[in-house]
Design a binder for these strands. Structure first.
Length: 297
DNA sequence: CTTCGTTCCTGTACGC
DNA sequence: TGCGTACAGGAACGAA
């Protein structure tokens, strides 16, 4: 699942492949991929064609390619989205050509952008179609539809004290707050669990009871785990195919709790527990991250 | 206003 | 073998 580090790996990987190139044609193969582009797939294609893409930018899990006219191509990878740089044709019969390494990429190809230099094209491939592409106007350098998304913890603009004050005002659990992109962006289920394990806090801990020191610990943990994942993702990324499979990433090996139900905690040896929460899984150590009691501070 | 449950989607794993 | 079900989960949306 692409979270901030995976999206950043994609962003930096795409820089050299798309910056400065002009789009010559757009194929939308599945309209769901452009569902957030209100004016429809044809308008999406029309607004993209002829545009010269600048250096891609990112906030949280959103990625965008500015044009030179205060608009941009905005992308969100959802759960299974990939942006691939590809060579070779996509034959009508659906059989992969030499330039396509994986037949499933072909099957799940949703949008294809070609460039006027005749070089490699840009392909949006997405199995589960939770991701999307759209064209949007920029406001203060950020696509208008993501104006409500908070700065992410790796941005200079991120304000730790403001985040702490927001937590104190909220009446919710810390994990729910970490996943709320309007409070802090870029954190998904995996890094939320990992950061809370590092900070030794239970996912249900009421945000209004957090001390400044604990909030700082959580933020530091988020930054830490993301920086490590980013560092791990920065290697072996020089291939033509900009692959973004968060699930098969090598950072798996560095996870302390996520997906480790019943395996020993790396700090105390207690079996890791799995709770169902928000229709998803939460992993934590029962000893290092005790469930909060009423009135617990 | 805030908070929270539902919904979208498809491939994989697993029990019977 | 095949069928049904649970699960993976980001974020927009609407209800309370």
């Amino acid at each position: 699942m692409p979270e901030l580090p995976e999206v950043e790996v994609v962003r930096s990987g795409l820089e050299r492949w798309v910056a400065g190139r002009t789009i010559s044609s757009v194929e939308v193969l599945h309209s769901r991929a452009t569902r957030r582009h209100g004016a429809g797939p044809a308008d999406f294609a029309a607004r993209l064609t002829g545009q010269r893409l600048e250096v891609p930018r990112r906030r949280g899990k959103y990625l965008w390619f500015p044009f030179d006219d205060d608009a941009a191509l905005l992308a969100h990878l959802g759960m299974s989205g990939q942006l691939l740089v590809g060579e070779g044709e996509l034959p009508e019969d659906g059989r992969p050509s030499a330039g396509t390494s994986d037949p499933s990429e072909l099957k799940h190809l949703r949008v294809r952008l070609s460039f006027d230099d005749g070089g490699p094209d840009l392909r949006f491939v997405d199995q589960r179609t939770f991701g999307h592409l759209m064209v949007d106007d920029l406001a203060n350098g950020v696509p208008a539809v993501i104006a409500h998304i908070a700065a992410d913890p790796l941005e200079d603009a991120f304000d730790g004290e403001a985040f702490f004050q927001a937590l104190r005002r909220r009446h919710t659990g810390i994990k729910r707050a970490l996943l709320d992109q309007s409070l802090i962006s870029g954190v998904g289920n995996i890094y939320a669990d990992e950061a809370l394990w590092r900070a030794e806090l239970h996912w249900a801990r009421p945000t209004e009871t957090l001390t400044r020191a604990q909030a700082t610990r959580v933020i530091d943990a988020v930054r830490e785990v993301m920086a490590e994942a980013l560092k791990a993702g920065g290697t072996s990324f020089d291939s033509l195919y900009v692959n973004v499979n968060g699930e098969s990433g090598y950072f798996d090996r560095s996870l302390n709790v996520y997906g480790r139900r019943d395996e020993p905690c790396n700090r105390c040896g207690t079996p890791i527990r799995r709770d169902s929460f928000m229709n998803r899984s939460s992993y934590s150590c029962p000893v290092c991250q005790p469930r909060p009691r009423r009135g617990h501070f």
